[in-house]
Design a protein around this nucleic acid. Structure first.
Length: 481
DNA sequence: ACCGGAAACC
DNA sequence: GGTTTCCGGT
């Protein structure tokens, strides 16, 4: 009624200018929102949006373990949600019901004992965004991904884009959004087609805003990466689909979610694994944007995007996460903890296996099950399953990692060095055992500093070809500008 | 506060 | 499919 909803189309950003047509993205990537099913923003996504914005800190924020957030003001969140969905009668009760539906999908689960506290299941979140990537045709396909076949079908190889999605770069706060804005403002007929922003890796090299040191926990550096959610096609899609203009443009529909071509240059393509790179090789990196708490209220222009990364308590060191023999926390909570540990690994840039486990789960689309189904055990009881997903992870992970398994490196033969988690036991290795920054970075090769001859055959490799094309495009852009 | 079934809605 | 709405139950 009073939500003045507008057409999604009006707010749908056009195809990023730097996109080079012709490159075959997986089909799903072309869908308006790269969304498996819905074309509307989903609640969990919306939640992430809020969590990401500084201005909603008092309404909802990360808290506790990795991925855990607290709805500080249930009514307000409900209100915002209602606003977004044009459901004036929305309230926390309803909203929470929707959240509960995520339990079965494993996207979210409740942190028992803590009021209004929920916790995201990263892998599922990512999965939803990257359902069964079309590896076969994806130009991003890592050359040596997984063992070529023995892997269970539900264990999709991790593609660069997937990785990228984990470490997207948001434009530096307060700068360089012009082009982006322009792009995002000029509606285009193909706005829903190619979405480069789906692949932050290719679209933005801008150093992300800084984040709190704590986010990276024990890690020595704080490379500017974002977690899976800052990125995603979904997210950007959501922004484009927002239909409740009432919300401040800069608040929930920040432009920084889109890549800024101007800030892009292959030379500085954000590296998915930049977190492992030596300081010098990592752009940005500062401490949490001083902006963090400096009254940046305007979420748009100079607005410092709120940390995308859920807080990752340093205490939650990998060491503590002893997968397999848990510790002292309650069973369920313990598993959650483990997940957190994985989260860290993921955050470190190596969530290679991340989400893979859920592939079989079909993006969680399985959704609800009849009580009988649940009893049948086909799918674990949401109450007990927690993060342990037998179905997907069991055979695609080395061992017992929960959803956040990052141990899939075993499948990434050639990339093992970039993996954080050791392969033994599936237990997260103590930080001290984490591999030191690799330099030159394994993927550096994908982003050569010196532009190869334009004639470089695309056949070099899918990834290379893409990079090349992208480079060319970028070069042209730079020259033009 | 939280849960989850059921049905309607878009 | 993803909620939204309603509601009985813990």
């Amino acid at each position: 009624m009073d939500c003045n909803c507008v057409s999604d189309l009006l707010l749908t950003p056009p195809v990023p200018a730097l996109w080079t047509p012709g490159i075959a993205f997986p089909d799903w990537a072309y869908k308006p929102e790269s969304s498996p099913g819905s074309r509307q923003i989903q609640l969990w996504h919306f939640i992430l949006e809020l969590l990401q914005k500084e201005e909603y800190q008092s309404v909802i924020s990360w808290q506790g373990e990795y991925g855990e957030f607290v709805i500080k003001d249930p009514d307000e969140v409900a209100k915002l949600w209602g606003l977004r969905k044009c459901k004036p009668h929305m309230n926390y009760d309803k909203l929470s019901r929707a959240l509960r539906y995520y339990y079965n999908k494993r996207i979210l689960h409740k942190t028992k004992g803590k009021r209004f506290t929920y916790k995201f299941n990263f892998s599922k979140v990512v999965l939803v965004n990257y359902p069964l990537l079309d590896m076969a045709s994806s130009p991003f396909l890592l050359q040596n991904h997984f063992n070529g076949g023995s892997a269970a079908p539900d264990c999709s190889p991790l593609t660069p884009e997937a990785l990228q999605s984990l470490f997207p770069r948001l434009p530096e706060s307060g700068r360089g959004t012009s082009l982006f804005d322009r792009v995002a403002t000029a509606p285009g007929p193909e706005g829903d087609k190619l979405r480069l922003d789906t692949f932050p890796f290719l679209s933005s090299a801008a150093p992300c805003y800084s984040k709190p040191p704590s986010l990276l926990g024990p890690y020595p550096r704080n490379p500017p990466f974002d977690y899976p959610w800052g990125f995603n096609p979904y997210l950007s899609g959501a922004f484009s689909l927002n239909n409740c203009p009432k919300l401040p443009p800069g608040s929930l529909y920040p432009s920084h979610f889109y890549p800024n071509p101007l800030q892009t240059s292959l030379g500085q393509l954000p590296h998915p694994f930049s977190s492992l790179l030596p300081p010098g090789e990592v752009a940005g990196g500062g401490e949490r944007g001083a902006a963090g708490q400096t009254g940046v209220t305007n979420g748009t222009a100079g607005g410092q995007p709120r940390l995308c990364l859920p807080p990752y308590p340093g205490a939650l060191s990998l060491g503590r996460t002893d997968i397999g023999n848990g510790g002292s926390v309650g069973e369920r909570e313990r598993r959650e903890t483990n997940t957190s540990g994985m989260g860290l690994g993921l955050g470190l840039g190596l969530g290679l296996g991340l989400g893979l486990g859920g592939m079989g789960l079909g993006g969680g689309a399985g959704g609800r099950q009849s009580p009988s189904e649940r009893r049948g055990g086909v799918k674990q009881d949401p109450e007990s399953d927690s993060d342990l997903e037998i179905t997907d992870l069991s055979d695609c992970s080395s061992d017992n990692e929960p959803d956040f398994s990052i141990t899939k490196e075993t499948r990434l033969s050639g990339r093992s060095q970039i993996l954080v988690e050791g392969k033994k036991g599936g237990a997260l290795p103590p930080l001290s055992s984490l591999p030191p920054p690799v330099s030159p970075h394994p993927l550096k090769s994908l982003v050569p500093l010196t532009p190869p001859p334009p004639s470089l055959p695309l056949s070099l490799s899918p990834s290379m070809a893409l990079v090349e094309r992208h480079r060319e495009t970028e070069t042209l852009k730079l020259i033009q500008s």
